[in-house]
Design a protein around this nucleic acid. Structure first.
Length: 274
DNA sequence: AAGAGACCCTGGATGC
DNA sequence: TGCATCCAGGGTCTCT
């Protein structure tokens, strides 16, 4: 499941492969992947465009085009970016292909078809509602205190709300709460100042380390050259229910919060009593 | 307004 | 062995 570190890794690799490349033609093999504009307009407007830059905002890939417009892509659950010779046979889950002028194909593969692309005049049309980046100074304990004030929802659910902070998904939310020793069911508004500070630090740490390890590959996530990430070897609680806590040895538990599988240490992350 | 839940999808895992 | 069912979860939408 690509989250911020995975999308960051993909953006950096993609930049080296498609910046200054021209899109000669476009193949849409499953039209539902194009969110906007309509598919016919999308293909007509993308044909002949040159990519001038690739960046990331939250979990979105942002590609600046030579006509001033923007191509945004979201990989959702199983989306992958691949760049490979056009002669390579299509995979049935490659739904969108940009045929580059240098003989390579830039392909959007997405088994579960949740991913989307947007061709827009201003990135804010899609990413305008996102909260701050976790590594931006704006994401501070004071900011968290302000946006969490009065919130009764579990902190785990709130960390997944992209309007509060951009880029966290299920894996890094669980890992950050573990590192900060905060129970995932704690009401967001109940966190003490010291806990808010610990949470901000934990989120920054886990995101920074995961970027350095080029993301977490559990199944679908691959870099554009097909290689996998390494952070799966650093996961301390995610999908480790039944195993001993790496810090205290208690048995890690799993529960469902907001419909999402959630992993934590019942001893290090107490719900009450401290 | 905030929070809960349905929905979109498919393939792998599980159960009988 | 084969078939049916369950589960995974990012984001959007609806309902209360």
């Amino acid at each position: 499941m690509p989250e911020l570190p995975e999308v960051q890794t993909i953006a950096m690799a993609l930049a080296g492969l498609v910046v200054e490349r021209t899109i000669d033609d476009v193949s849409v093999r499953w039209p539902g992947i194009v969110d906007r504009p309509d598919v016919t307009t999308f293909v007509a407007m993308m044909r002949g465009r040159r990519v001038t830059a690739v960046s990331r905002r939250g979990k979105y890939l942002q590609c600046a085009l030579d006509n001033g417009r923007w191509l945004l892509l979201h990989l959702r659950m199983t989306g992958e970016m691949r760049v490979l010779p056009a002669a390579v046979a299509f995979d049935p889950h490659e739904h969108l292909i940009f045929h580059l002028e240098n003989g390579l194909d830039w392909r959007f593969k997405d088994t579960r078809k949740f991913g989307r692309v947007y061709l827009i005049a201003d990135p804010a049309e899609v990413v305008g509602q996102l909260g701050p980046e976790p590594l931006d100074p704006a994401f501070s304990p004071a900011y968290l205190a302000r946006v969490l004030a009065g919130r009764q929802a579990p902190i785990k659910s709130l960390l997944l709300d992209q309007r509060l902070v951009a880029g966290l998904g299920n894996i890094y939310a669980d890992e950050a709460l573990f590192r900060a020793r905060i129970h995932p069911l704690r009401a967001g508004g109940s966190l003490e100042p010291a806990e808010l500070a610990a949470l901000v630090e934990a989120i920054r740490d886990v995101i920074t380390q995961a970027i350095a390890e080029m993301g977490t590959t559990l199944r679908d996530y691959h870099r554009p050259d097909g290689s996998v990430g390494r952070f799966q070897n650093r996961l301390q609680v995610f999908r480790r229910q039944g195993e001993p806590c790496p810090r205290c040895g208690a048995i890690l538990q799993r529960l469902v919060v907001g419909g999402r599988s959630t992993h934590f240490c019942p001893q290090d992350q107490p719900l009450s009593g401290e």
